[in-house]
Nucleic acid binder design. Structure first.
Lengths: 209, 209
DNA sequence: TGCCTATTGTTAAAATCTTGACATAGTTTT
DNA sequence: AAAACTATGTCAAGATTTTAACAATAGGCA
């Protein structure tokens, strides 16, 4: 059985992945944990420890091959496969997220955009028409939907999440300002913008002292 | 001198604040750490420990007064004061953030929206006109700008951040997919949506096993 | 009023996470 | 081909965070 990797490590992986991607773009072939630690402002020890959770990607006396390590971390994160994404809630945030994922993230493909508001029905957001929520079951049945981004008011978040799970969507990227606990058999990733802004506010207050 | 509060605690404060707000809305007057722990799915011990970093807000044998605790945490987070916010980058995400903060968060007020694209000049986004970036110095001089949200491509993020700091804006809510280290005397809060999505992807992969 | 109960604030233990140290293995140089 | 060097993987120590335990104190009730 695999040893459980701590969420602290998982949170750092995307950052490694990003730095390695930049090194790759810059044509850097190899890098040592020490050099990387200076760029990323973390300890070299932590880098080696983190990577070793998943196996020995480096070579003594040489360091890490950038392309190889980048690819391996990509595999670990699962971003080398394609994931189909739908967005529920076609407001500003929903449209922004749809556009953001489309342009910024390979590995994730926006294939549907839904809302309850009949006025939005059929409206084109880039190359996707806004569909009504009652078309969702049919859509999910006919398409391999893996992730649903929830960009809707918190009042509707939980019921929508439950519906999605019952339809077979087991991963939710939740932007609604509410916790979606108590839903079994689903993977949730929360983006609480309010929380982030309040943390900023706290740190401003501290900084002033 | 104040003892330094760990970021782990700070990250939890907004969540307490949210739950207390909901209790307040529901007319609940008092709550024990034990009851709150059941709702929030954290240990009662952690709640008491966290709150005690800031002082004794509760009463033995009684619990915590919801309204009082909510207000105190609001003070700690600094959300009971008003903070003026500008948004740099009037794309989808910038417009979404501007709208989001406006409608969801009291305590934060969007007062300006900037972009480099001349085609957007003067375009109204709700009640705010898009201004050109060269109007920024004058605007900052005449308005008490505390926070700048950066919703622009990563290539421009660092130079814009440096400019903002030189103009006197010392808090940045960064949505660009780049780290803004090495900038002294500024408080940064990052929202890396890509990282969040990759964490979700990782957890999906694990879940399938 | 005084006893009983509830629940905090706080201390200490346990668990987890991070950092430092170094033997070992592979690379580069001569 | 051997010597010198570099940098990993790993172990152990140190630091931090979380959880458990409980004495002390305030509220509720008789």
């Amino acid at each position: 059985m695999d040893k459980q990797i701590s969420q602290a490590v998982i949170r750092r992986l995307p950052r490694y992945y990003r730095y390695l991607g930049e090194l790759l773009d810059d044509g850097v072939e190899r890098i040592s944990s020490n050099d990387l630690s200076k760029r990323m402002h973390v300890t070299a020890s932590q880098i080696r420890q983190d990577l070793n959770n998943f196996g020995g990607f480096g070579q003594q006396g040489y360091g890490y091959n950038v392309a190889y390590l980048h690819d391996e971390i990509g595999n670990i994160l699962g971003v080398n496969d394609t994931h189909n994404v739908i967005v529920i809630g076609a407001g500003n945030l929903g449209q922004a997220i749809a556009g953001y994922v489309k342009f910024e993230r390979v590995g994730f493909k926006i294939i549907g955009l839904f809302d309850v508001n009949p006025e939005l029905k059929g409206k084109m957001v880039r190359d996707l028409p806004v569909q009504m929520l009652d078309e969702l079951p049919e859509f999910v049945k006919n398409n391999n939907v893996e992730i649903a981004a929830l960009t809707l008011p918190k009042q509707n978040a939980k019921s929508t999440a439950l519906k999605l799970v019952s339809l077979g969507v087991h991963a939710i990227w939740n932007f609604a300002h509410v916790d979606l606990d108590d839903i079994p058999d689903v993977v949730i990733e929360n983006v609480h913008l309010s929380d982030s802004l309040m943390q900023l506010s706290y740190n401003i207050t501290q900084h002033k002292k």
